[in-house]
Each structure stands twice: as C-alpha cells, then as structure tokens.
Design a protein around this nucleic acid. Structure first.
Lengths: 193, 193
DNA sequence: TGAAGACTAGACAGGTCTGTCTGCTATCGT
DNA sequence: ACGATAGCAGACAGACCTGTCTAGTCTTCA
C-alpha cells in the first residue's frame, strides 16, 4: 500500500509472512498451521518472523487485523456502486454473496479463529472490534435509508449476515447469502414504509 | 440411557470419557484439549481410552455424535409444549434462545469443530448430517404449518437459526435468538397467509 | 570503502502431543 | 473357585511445536 517503487519490488519479509499466514491460517486454522509451514511458504527465516512479530500470537493478531482492514475496504468499495440508501444497505449482502461464492471461502475468519482460541486473548479483542464495526455500518446505513428504528433494523441485519456467512461455510453451494438478501429486502421495506 | 441399575451405578469408562470430552472439547476446542486433560478429568487410564475409541479422532466423532443426539432429543422435547404447527415452528427459536442464554454457551459445536478440522474428515461427516437433520426438521414443520413453499421457508429459517447461534457465540448478552424469532414470525406469516 | 541493518539457513533446547506397552487389580458369570 | 473382561497407573517412543541462538550473506548509504 505505502510502497510506490518504480519497478515491482520484492515484498519485504513482513509482507510475505503476512501473506503466507493469511492463506494458511484462513484455510486450515490458526492452531493447525505451525510456524514452520508459514516461514516455508513465505520463504523467510524463522529469526525474521520472531524479530518482526515477536510471537505466534502476535502474528495471529496481525493476520486478523489485516482481515479486518481488507474487509472494510472491500465492503465500502463494493457499496460505492449504489446511490440509493436502500440499495447500499442491501448491497452489503450482495458483496457477501460474491464472497461466499468464491472457492476458497471458509466462513468468518474471526469466528473461526475465536473457536480455537482462549477467551480474553488477542483474538477476542480483534473479533469484537470487527463485530462492532459491522454493527455500526448497518446502523448508519439503516439510518440513512430512513429506518424508523435503525438500531433494531441493524440487529436484524446482523443476524442475517451471520447466518449467511455460517451457511456459506457449512453448506456446499450455499445460497444462504441470497436468501438473506431477500429477507433483508422485506425487513428494510417494513422498517422504512 | 440404557442402564437401569437399582442403585446409582458408577458410570463406565466410556461414559466418563464422553462426559469429560464433551465438556472440554466444547469449552476449549478439540485441538486445544489434549488426551491427558480428558483422561485426567474422566479418571480413566489412557489405555482405556485407546481400547475404547481407538484414536482421538474417533473420540471427537463420538463427542459430536453425542451432541447431535442430545440436540435432537432436546429440540423435539421442547417442541412438545406447543400444539399449533406455527407455534411449533417458532418454538425452535424459543429453545435456541434458552440455549444461547445459558452461561456455558459457546456456539454450534459442529461449526466450532469444523473450523479447526481438515475438510473431508469425520468432523465434516457428522456436521453435514446434523445440518441435514436441522433443515429437514424445518421443512417438515413448515409443511405442517401450511407454508406454500416449505423448502423456501426452511432455507430462510436455517439462515436465521445459524445467525442466532453465531450471534449468541460472539456477542455478550446477545439477543440474536429473540431477534431471529421475530423475523421468523414475519416470514411464517408471509409464507402461510 | 566500510559500517550498519535486514535477511537467510539451520541447529538446538524444552515442552507437549498422540499413541503403545507393560504390569497390576477388581469384578463378574459360570 | 476361576478364568475372562474391564479398568488403572504410568513409563516410554517418536513426532511436532514454539522460541532462541549462532554464523554468514546481501544491500544500502554515508
């Protein structure tokens, strides 16, 4: 992001580590994937990992923070297609449908990491921050769309979002995101009449 | 279940192992919890575990099968309170709300185990069986309630169920199950008018 | 030129994990 | 009474994991 070299520069050890951690942690879980697998894929020495991140826990946190950042930018970018506030609200489910349709989709990375991490650790911190952001986004979009009770509508949409994400994870060829979008359409219509 | 001894008999090694595995696996994850923790809590020798289950993977499968069985009986028992088919349909969310409200609730055990297990393993098998049962239950209840398109309504209710379960896992004092019940009420009314 | 910083390769320590094996004990049906 | 079955206690092997350390290489900039 911040690198603007004339020729395509070789990514730094930090960037390669994060890329490898992102792929492996998301695909197989943070506990299953060991340090050796990550440094091998990144082509990086073990000492570089520990001088950069300090511990595996911190690498996991960095992985999740990167996911959070990516999610925010992708979602906001996807919403710029729409002008009408209601379309923007439903656009969240459009973006989710595209995401769950991609081959490598394995559900919410925060939920997945949380399922195998102790409570109170860094994973929980990043996860709650991510959830708060999601809820805040739905609240703002609901308010802009003219909902009578934006908080209540946001709560409903969060349930639909979580359900679509979980369904996309657990079922093969899941249509859960599209189903969620249909329900959301009904709810938005009822909340803004 | 099948034991009807006059005096309260000491549970067998298998039963104690399953009880300990259920508590620990669900609370902390199947990967985090080692064999030694389980046999210590169960008060069972390691050799007994391996002569009974053969491997940790098989113990995990037995744990999930026990969860599946328990879920079926609890859900069906909870639904017997209601006579009206629509109430029975919504009763699923009533039972879920009670479940997510209990202190030890940590989300869907099948999703959690699946998040840290390789695809194609025994965990995936039991999980898909459990999901198929859930969807079948919703389908039958939707049909009995007179839904025009029971399959479509079942798909919608599965999304709500998954969303409520995930929300109950990730948010403190989540009201997701109640929100899901409200949405389900709307959907059932719209599908059976 | 030369020094500092970033990086690599890999050995190593200390711990934990699954799974096996050896003995010993208690219980129960015949 | 006795043999079979179930179970207990714990040592052990071999693999794997995180994290540290040494030693050498490459790049960059003053």
């Amino acid at each position: 992001m911040s690198a603007a070299s004339p020729t395509t520069r070789k990514p730094s050890a930090r960037e390669r580590l994060l890329a490898a951690a992102d792929e492996l942690f998301y695909a197989e879980g943070v506990h299953t994937v060991g340090i050796d697998r990550i440094i091998e894929r990144a082509g990086v020495a073990k000492a570089s990992l520990y001088s950069t991140f300090g511990s595996k826990d911190e690498l996991v946190r960095a992985y999740l923070e990167g996911r959070h950042e990516l999610r925010r930018t992708r979602l906001l970018a996807g919403l710029e297609r729409y002008d009408d506030p209601r379309d923007r609200l439903l656009g969240v489910f459009e973006v989710l449908a595209e995401l769950t349709g991609t081959p490598g989709f394995r559900g919410c990375p925060f939920y997945n990491a949380s399922a195998e991490s102790p409570t109170g650790g860094p994973v929980e911190q990043v996860s709650t921050a991510n959830r708060a952001w999601t809820r805040g986004l739905f609240f703002e979009l609901a308010r802009d769309a003219g909902a009578k009770d934006p908080a209540a509508l946001a709560d409903q949409l969060v349930v639909l979002y979580d359900g679509a994400s979980a369904g996309g994870r657990m079922d093969k060829n899941s249509r859960a995101a599209l189903v969620a979008r249909e329900i959301a359409t009904m709810l938005v219509a009822a909340a803004t009449l």
